[in-house]
Every structure is written in structure tokens, then in C-alpha cells.
């Protein structure tokens, strides 16, 4: 049985009368990359902040590495690397100063590792933090979170502001660490990266977790999105079709069933073009948020 790294039990957080999150239950195992998605204000950041004890739960409990997130917060943070969605450091510092300070907080951080990460992410340590672009500040956040070889990484929108090359390098690094047993909690609006790299995904909406699924479950290969260009409108009748829309001589629908049956049906009508696309996480995700 996999070792549980994060265990959230009935977590609720209220800001006065306003609900931040309610009855969140979540278990994340060692070595998992867990995607955490949901619209703005859904409760993602509140959950992360409660995990790191920025916020005190109104009720419920969070255990990380079997330790209590409130009482043992310091012990937990010795093993957790955190990248916030908005990066704010001390503007008067140079990148090198911040890394030196960060280094002093953990045992066994080597300058060699810092230099390796700076080279990997193409970051100049001699620059002042207030002179850095948004993307470069994000790199600082990523390096400070990785330099001490944490066992759990909590990343909130880590690729926001990074160019595609650096994004790939980041995920290569994360996948390498995953193989070494590191657990990664990834909150993101970039559904493609969640789909590509995560093992499971939790969807949060209105402060509640509405679903937790394995990515291969969510991105159901049996469901396709079909778009057909037609000469004239037709009545398509086949089991497994849903969400049928006809607009501008284009018929689009979702199809769950055997492709051969679909093709047989289509061969009987006059079709200009056909596109059959596997349903992406984005489509699934938007389904969750549909009215």
C-alpha cells in the first residue's frame, strides 16, 4: 500500500460568515503528481494555505507526512517546497542573497545544486530581485523550492510566466524527482499540463471537492468529440451521441461507442469533412463547470 503523504479530513475554513472551503477530504500518496484544478475563488489557494498553516482550519484536520499541519507546521515545512502563484520577495535583495538566506534554513543544501538549478532554468544570480521579470521571479521561486531536495512539492501555478522551453525543463525535473519518491501537488489552470503530467486530479468548485479521478479515467478514451461539415442538415440517430449542436453547416457532438458504427452511419449521408478528436481534460473540465 502506498504511503499517504497528504491527508485532509473534513477541512472547512470560513472567513467570518464567508465560506472558503467546506468538508474537503483528500488523500495523496507518495510519488504521486496530483493536479488540483478549479475556477478562480473555488478554494484552491485556501486549501494550500491551510496545508502550510498560513490559515488555521475552522474545522477538520490536515496531516502531512503523518504530522499535524498546525502543531507540527515547522517539521512539515522542513520537507516541503512551495511555489506561490504570485511571487513576492524582498526587492532590495539580489537573487544570490535570497538563495543564501534560503540555504541557511535547511541542512545539506549545496552551492553546486543551486548553481545546477540556476543553469537549468537560465537564471542569473547576480541580478536584483526587483529588476527581474515576472517569469524570472517565478524561476527564483522554483529554485528556492527545489534546492533542498524536499519530499513534497506544493506548486501553485508554477508555469505561469515561464516560456515553453523552461516549462518543459521544469517538468523534466519534476518527473525525475517523482521517480525518486517525491510527491507533487500541482494547482494549475493549465489543463494541458495537468493532463500531461498528473496521475490524478481533484476538481474543486464553490469550496468543495466535486470529484477526484485518475487522469486516464477523466480523459476517457471512449468519448470522442466529433465535428462534421455537411452540405445540408441531417438527422443523425445513433446510440452514444450526446450534446449535439448544428451551427453553420457544422454538426458537433460527443460520441461514446464503437467508431466503426459511427463511420457506417456517416457513410450513409453526404459529408464534406469529419474530425474525430479524443475528448481532452479541458473539455471534461468545462463539463464539470457547465450550468
Amino acid at each position: 500500500m502506498s504511503k499517504e503523504v497528504i491527508k485532509i479530513k473534513n477541512l472547512s475554513k470560513y472567513y467570518g460568515n464567508i465560506m472558503g472551503v467546506k468538508d474537503i477530504n483528500l488523500t495523496i500518496n507518495q510519488g504521486e503528481i496530483f493536479g488540483f484544478i478549479g475556477p478562480n475563488g473555488a478554494g484552491k489557494s485556501t486549501t494550500i494555505r491551510a496545508m502550510l498553516n498560513f490559515l488555521f482550519p475552522t474545522s477538520g484536520k490536515i496531516e502531512i507526512f503523518g504530522l499535524d499541519s498546525v502543531k507540527d507546521s515547522n517539521l512539515i515545512k522542513e520537507k516541503v517546497g512551495y511555489v506561490p502563484s504570485e511571487v513576492n520577495y524582498y526587492d532590495y535583495m539580489k537573487v544570490r542573497d535570497l538563495f543564501n538566506f534560503n540555504k541557511s534554513l535547511y541542512p545539506n543544501v549545496t552551492q553546486k545544486e543551486i548553481d545546477r538549478l540556476c543553469k537549468l532554468f537560465d537564471l542569473n544570480q547576480n541580478r536584483k530581485i526587483n529588476k527581474l521579470s515576472f517569469g524570472n521571479k517565478k524561476k527564483v521561486a522554483i529554485i528556492q523550492a527545489l534546492m533542498f531536495n524536499p519530499q513534497l512539492l506544493i506548486f501553485d501555478e508554477p508555469t505561469n510566466g515561464l516560456d515553453p522551453l523552461i516549462q518543459n525543463k521544469l517538468f523534466d525535473e519534476l518527473l525525475t524527482r517523482q521517480k525518486q519518491g517525491v510527491t507533487i501537488f500541482l494547482s494549475s489552470h493549465n489543463l494541458r499540463e495537468v493532463e500531461k503530467y498528473c496521475d490524478r486530479v481533484g476538481i474543486v468548485r464553490n469550496g468543495k471537492i466535486i470529484d477526484v479521478k485518475k487522469i486516464d479515467q477523466l480523459n476517457n478514451k471512449n468519448i470522442k468529440k466529433v465535428v462534421i461539415k455537411l452540405m445540408k442538415k441531417i438527422n443523425l440517430s445513433l446510440e452514444g451521441i450526446s450534446d449535439l449542436i448544428y451551427k453553420n453547416k457544422e454538426l458537433s457532438f460527443k460520441y461514446k461507442g464503437e467508431i466503426s458504427k459511427l463511420l457506417n452511419t456517416l457513410s450513409e449521408v453526404e459529408v464534406l469533412d469529419v474530425n474525430i478528436i479524443p475528448l481532452s481534460l479541458e473539455e471534461d473540465f468545462l463539463d464539470y463547470y457547465g450550468e
Binding site: 498553516n53 498560513f54 515547522n74 517539521l75 522542513e78 512551495y82 520577495y89 534554513l105
Partner: peptide
């Protein structure tokens, strides 16, 4: 206000 406290809070500092 500067939000730099978020950095300190994420570290093993009481």
C-alpha cells in the same frame, strides 16, 4: 502588504 511574508511562512521558521 508586500506579501513577502508568504515566503517566510513557507519556511521552517516559527
Amino acid at each position: 502588504g508586500d506579501k513577502s511574508i508568504e515566503y517566510l511562512y513557507s519556511k521552517p521558521i516559527k
